[in-house]
């Protein structure tokens, strides 16, 4: 058998091409949020499914104990969680640490009343196409992702709060119109 140079080269070129051929991250904004069910961090027997929160506006926050901006976001998200009505809004955090000791210490330092789920393999993070840490998603009452916020600066909280309030108000008006 005589193997031609172009044939061998084409094989190497395919390998080389794979160096830059990382699948483009597809945005989930404007689409139904990918479904998931994850264990609650620190209480693995309890699970929460995103589906179970349908009807509420959800702020989904992906975090990790080694992520610097998360130290700023946690106290502000905790405040937000306290000031918005629980029947209309839920804040759900998803921890992405590979080991559990880091987040346990983090939560001890930054205690919050909202639920944190554990996704050590990053499966849900992959579904949501994260490009940075932390990342949060605002999901409306119908389960559609309305926006993505990558990174966190303290001043970002006002935009997030405004957006969530608008979605809550829109849904409440809609439900009142249905009732009439």
């Amino acid at each position: 058998m005589r193997t031609s140079l172009p044939r061998i080269l084409s094989i190497f070129v395919m390998f080389a091409a794979s160096a830059g051929a990382h699948a483009a991250v597809e945005t989930v904004v404007g689409k139904p949020a990918p479904a998931f069910e994850l264990p609650v961090f620190g209480s693995e027997s309890r699970h929460v499914a995103l589906e179970s929160l349908r009807g509420k506006v959800v702020l989904l926050d992906f975090w990790a104990s080694w992520c610097g901006p998360c130290r700023q976001s946690f106290p502000l998200y905790e405040k937000l969680h306290g000031e918005l009505p629980a029947q209309d809004f839920t804040l759900l955090a998803i921890n992405l640490d590979e080991m559990a000791d880091g987040p346990a210490a983090f939560l001890y330092e930054h205690p919050v009343s909202y639920t944190s789920l554990a996704d050590p393999a990053g499966d849900v993070a992959r579904k949501f196409g994260l490009i940075g840490m932390p990342t949060s998603f605002v999901i409306d009452r119908d389960g559609v992702v309305r926006s993505r916020h990558t990174g966190f600066k303290p001043q970002d909280i006002d935009a997030v709060r405004g957006e969530i309030r608008e979605l809550i108000a829109a849904g409440t008006e809609g439900r009142q119109a249905d009732a009439n």
Binding site: A16, A19, S65, D97, E98, T135
Partner: peptide
């Protein structure tokens, strides 16, 4: 050809 480190894998 490498697999890029994902943002959540930087622990």
């Amino acid at each position: 050809a490498t697999t890029p480190v994902q943002p959540w894998e930087r622990g």
